[in-house]
């Protein structure tokens, strides 16, 4: 595989994305919406003092070493902050949908696929270039709003908790590994769907269904992370790496230039 050619295709994909107002709007609006939702759901109850009664569940969790010494308000703040992170973790699952569904089916719709398939690019180079072109623009808003979220929460956590809550080990694992790995898996699935459907609209509709299992995995991962330990996340990361490797291999093997433009 010639990675120079992968990079050239990736750069072209990026150029197309930054020139599409619809895609740019989707890539910014959705994360901003999730960000506002996450921040307000974390901060508002604490600021208004409506944290509710102590729940037995609160005691069974242990987010910090001094968990049992924290007030109900502080515990509520931390749990809300973690829930906010989970909401933001949906971004790498949702955002690639916008771009990846269009990668192959869109090129066929617009009649640009023939130029690519007649070029010296191999199937693997095309596949990888397209994956990178869909994944990175989806991860940038994820990283950006995760970072903003951590800063915003820390701004209040100093007052509420007396220390900066982020970054903690779970945040780092979500930020650096789980988010990108979930994004990579979604992109793989969406690109795979895109090669099999005739229009980008079909790809988006079908892709929405296909990523449902990934959403369940994400939810399960999150619950495991808070109920058990961050160490569980390392196992999940390993499983996701293997899953992505398999998905990537399948994707490269099923991409067929003849079927793509037929």
């Amino acid at each position: 595989m010639d990675f120079r050619l992968v990079y050239i295709l990736f750069k072209k994909e990026l150029d197309e994305i930054v020139r599409s107002k619809y895609v740019l709007f989707s890539l910014l609006f959705m994360p901003a919406f999730f960000f506002i939702l996450s921040v307000t759901s974390t901060i508002a109850p604490v600021l208004s003092g409506t944290t509710g009664e102590a729940d037995p569940l609160f005691s069974s969790l242990k987010f910090t070493d001094n968990w049992n010494e924290l007030s109900i308000q502080q515990k509520f703040f931390i749990i809300s902050a973690e829930m906010g992170i989970m909401m933001l973790l949906f971004l790498p699952l949702i955002l690639p949908n916008v771009i990846a569904a269009d990668t192959f089916a869109g090129e066929r719709d617009r009649g640009t696929a023939e130029g690519i398939v007649a070029s010296p690019l191999t199937e693997s180079e095309i596949y990888l270039g397209k994956i990178c072109g869909a994944l990175l623009p989806s991860l940038i808003p994820f990283w950006l709003f995760m970072g903003l979220y951590a800063i915003t929460i820390d701004y209040y956590s100093k007052d509420v908790l007396g220390f900066y809550y982020y970054p903690n080990i779970r945040f780092v694992l979500f930020f650096l590994f789980l988010g990108p790995l979930f994004g990579f898996a979604t992109t793989n699935v969406m690109v795979w769907v895109s090669t099999r459907t005739s229009t980008s609209r079909d790809a988006q509709q079908l892709g929405g269904l296909v990523i449902m299992p990934l959403i369940f995995i994400l939810f399960g991962t999150f619950v495991m992370a808070i109920m058990l330990s961050w160490k569980v996340l390392l196992i999940v990361i390993l499983v996701l790496i293997i899953l992505n490797y398999i998905l990537g291999k399948i994707g490269m093997s099923i991409l067929d230039r003849e079927n793509w433009i037929k």
């Binding site: 617009r110 130029g115 010296p120």
Partner: peptide
């Protein structure tokens, strides 16, 4: 090809540059 394989959002220069790089 019969249907020009050109990226409508990109400029003429960028289209040719992309294919020039690929080749």
């Amino acid at each position: 090809p019969e249907q020009p394989s050109l990226y409508p959002r990109l400029t003429a220069r960028r289209n040719l540059q992309f294919y020039g790089d690929i080749y």
